Simulated assay, not measured.
Amino acid sequence: MKQPELGHKIQNWRKAKGLTQEELVERCNLNVRTLQRIEAGEVLPRSYTVKSILDVLEVDFSALNLPDTSEKDIYTLLKPNKKFIQWAAVLGVLYLCLSFVEGFIEIGYFYDFGIEVSGVTYSLIKLGIMLSFSVFYYVFYIIGKKLDDGLLKVSAIVLIGLIVISSINDISVFYTEYISIEFSLMMTSVVFGIGYTLLGIALLMRKELLGNLALVSGIFGIVSGVGFTTIIMAIPALFTLTIFEILLIVLIVRLVSSNSNELAESVTEVSAVNS
């Protein structure tokens, strides 16, 4: 059963029971907007959300066979955003390249290794990182929105907010040194660690829907996040973070470049592994 077919069926079952959207959400402990988006086929709801709706409507949940069918619709849901997501993947690669340049400059400049860099050059690099990172991670907000996944949306927005704040802070420290470099790096490590951990958990929770790549990405995200949060493991976490972000680029490229048949085959493989 494809989305929006599922949404249409829920709408028909609701009407057959003589319930308004407001009456149904009150019994299901949902909000009206969520139900509206489900019925309109704009999101892929979690299985337990669908189950709570069907329990009220007295419809057999097992007959829907959701784990094997909802995956086919991710490509369809993301198709309107396909161009943006493809460009975001390119910017993700750009972000990784700029982050290596940034690390080389900061280690050489701030720790007196003889590397000279102008304020303009440093600021442009930081702004490039901020913009490319923001667009790249915004993809996961889009995916979270399509899947009606609050944790995925929140973690993406948190990371985007952090990169904006930290970029402005780093430029300010470069020009004014109003706080020590060490303190700035420690604070950045902790807050980003929390953000990456949240995103890793969100991906891990979606492993059955997004596949094994999301599972592996989620694990690397959590490991990176925990490493940054502890501070003492921040250096090793930089390596796992690089792997994590490469996996994210591959994941979003696959989500928008696969056709429905390929996705269906992917789900069959995942289901076989899980069973």
Rank of each mutant, 00 (worst) to 15 (best):
I142S: 01
V135R: 01
S155E: 09
F174T: 07
I125V: 15
L147W: 04
T121P: 02
L162W: 09
K145T: 10
V158P: 03
S132L: 10
F174N: 06
L124K: 09
Y141F: 15
A156S: 14
Y137Q: 07
S134C: 11
L131P: 01
V139Y: 08
K146P: 00
S172A: 09
I179P: 02
D148E: 10
G150L: 12
F136P: 00
K145Q: 06
V154E: 08
L131N: 06
I125N: 01
E177F: 14
V164M: 13
S172D: 09
Y178P: 03
L124P: 06
L131I: 15
L124Y: 15
V154T: 12
I165P: 06
I163F: 02
I179E: 11
S134G: 04
D170V: 06
S132P: 07
I157T: 10
I157E: 06
S123W: 07
K145M: 11
T121E: 09
D148A: 11
I163M: 12
A156Q: 07
I171R: 02
G150T: 13
L159D: 00
S167N: 07
D148I: 04
I165F: 10
I168F: 08
S166W: 02
G161C: 03
I142N: 01
Y141K: 13
V120A: 13
I142C: 04
K145V: 03
I181D: 02
K146D: 01
A156P: 14
S155W: 08
L127W: 13
D170H: 07
L162N: 09
I181P: 02
L159E: 01
G119E: 09
I143S: 00
I179V: 12
T121N: 11
L124S: 13
S167D: 04
F133S: 03
G119C: 05
V173W: 12
K153M: 15
S155R: 08
F174Y: 10
I160T: 01
L151H: 00
K153W: 15
L162E: 05
I165K: 10
V154W: 14
Y137F: 15
V154Y: 15
D148G: 14
I143R: 00
L159M: 14
I142G: 00
V120E: 12
L131H: 14
V135W: 03
I168H: 05
Y137S: 04
L131E: 05
